[in-house]
Amino acid sequence: MCTGRIDPAMVARAFQKRLDGLMVVGCYFGDCHYISGNVQAKAKIDTTRKLFKHIGVNEERLAFRQCSSGEASVFVKLVTEFDEKIRSLGPLGGDGDRVKAPEIFGKLEAAEAVLAGEKIRWVMGKRTPFLETGNIYGEIFTEHEFNRAMDMIIVEEIEVQEILAKLKEGARSVKDLAGDLAIPSERVFRYITALKRKGMVALDNVADRSPIFQLVPQEV
């Protein structure tokens, strides 16, 4: 097993279950016993950190560090520093985080859904091919571009997951969703139109000239 096995969804799940800090320590690049597993791990942790930052979890709680099996002192330093960092941040959802408990755990639930979801996993998985060999048209993406696209996807995915989570509780109008989730209503509307098109959300009824939307159960 390699750090490459670390599934970001599992990471979010652990934090959702009250983990306060996680440090992933992998080999140095080019020194990986699984050749490139650490590269994948780093990319996945980086994305998870971005997502954490977006949802209000202090991203310092999640770290990717590197050291070799011969570097005991480096390892000790890494662990000591991380331990001090987490102690200074305190428990998850306290002073160290932008969003507080218990709200933060709802956010982490959405984060887990995002990280277990198809879209972000697909894009994360395509990172190496896009950066190194390019897409099917041979267009190579720069890290810069990829990160920018990823930033956008993170915001969209979290918001979509939050909308889906809300709709799971019952049918709602765009206005209600916007109010509940503190997302501008035009953005909610756009997500809803996209979700409708995907067949994941449908019109339930029209109440007082406001369309009410409901979740469409998905076949598994």
Binding site: E118, K119, W122, V123, I153, E156, A194, K198, G199, M200
Partner: peptide, 11 residues
């Protein structure tokens, strides 16, 4: 099947 538009990352 719409699987493609469900995963499409480009909004």
């Amino acid at each position: 099947c719409k699987a493609c538009i469900q995963v499409c990352p480009v909004n």
